[in-house]
Simulated assay, not measured.
Amino acid sequence: MTWTVPNILTVMRLLAAPMIAVMFLYFTRPYADWFALILFISAAITDYIDGYLAREWKQETKLGAMLDPIADKAMVVIALMVIVGYSSMSPWLVLPATFILFREVFVSGLREFLGDVAGTLKVTKLAKWKTTAQMVAISVLFAQGVFEHYFGMSVYGMDEAMVADILSGREEDVLGLWWKAAGMVWTGHVGMWLLWVAAALTLLSGADYLSKAMPHLKDEKP
């Protein structure tokens, strides 16, 4: 086992994955949303850095090749679980999140079944794009959670205090609330559509892997 800098970054990303859920157990919101957002973005950045350093420093190892996709999947799966569980937009996020989780489980099972042959199913550019789309969508959705709880609003409405401020007719309050609501709605809707894009790319990459694996799944003729 070789503990190179890229491998250390990969292990840190793997350990950060469950910490996203832990944030919501030990911190109140919006602090949990802030910590989860910062942690997720930091982990997503290391996903690029460790791969770049491994190639540039010629430190590609079997440990890194094994842990890197596991860390990516763990980050995405746990983050989606937290977002669907805590976001007020969860009814609109369940289906794309389901598609993403289904693909990850399906491809993992496919690789496990193929065993040594799975090495022929190399990571494609489409798979890299889907990972990027997932990371961006999840980051935006965590940001929406910050807006939602920091400003005391939900996607479906405002609390009683905000309604009272608007009805009071104070211009500065109305303008401030408008900007807060606009930020919350913007991040929520953009995050939702980005997640749908990520889900579409995820399903396409899954279908691509399946088509490439089909020759290895045929029964031998007696």
Rank of each mutant, 00 (worst) to 15 (best):
D68N: 06
E220T: 00
M19W: 07
T46M: 00
W34S: 06
A143E: 01
A65C: 01
T61C: 01
M162R: 13
L201W: 02
L201F: 07
G115P: 05
S139D: 02
L201R: 02
L67R: 08
V146W: 07
A182T: 13
L121K: 12
M1E: 06
V117G: 07
L121Q: 14
I8T: 00
V82I: 14
F147N: 10
E220F: 07
D219E: 11
G152E: 06
Y52M: 15
P30M: 12
L67V: 13
K58V: 15
L53F: 02
G64F: 00
L141V: 14
T131G: 11
F142A: 14
K58A: 12
A133W: 09
W196L: 06
L93G: 14
D219F: 08
Y52F: 02
E172P: 03
G176F: 04
I20S: 11
L167D: 13
K212D: 15
L210D: 03
M162G: 12
P222F: 09
I78S: 12
G152C: 14
W34M: 09
W129C: 09
F24D: 15
M12I: 14
L175D: 10
K180M: 10
K221E: 07
L14N: 10
V107K: 03
V146D: 02
D50K: 00
A143G: 15
K125G: 08
Q59N: 04
V197Y: 01
M1C: 05
G85Y: 03
K62D: 12
L121F: 06
V174T: 12
R29I: 11
P6I: 01
A182W: 02
F24L: 13
F27C: 11
F147A: 11
S205M: 08
S211E: 05
G191D: 11
A16E: 01
L95T: 08
A71E: 00
V76C: 12
V185P: 02
A198G: 08
K218H: 05
D68P: 03
L195C: 08
L9M: 01
S87H: 09
M89R: 13
L14D: 03
L9K: 00
V105W: 04
V107L: 08
F113A: 15
P69W: 04
A44V: 00
A127T: 15
M23D: 14
P6W: 00
R29F: 03
V84H: 10
L114W: 07
V155W: 08
Y150D: 09
A54W: 01
A199Q: 06
V140A: 12
S154A: 06
I78A: 13
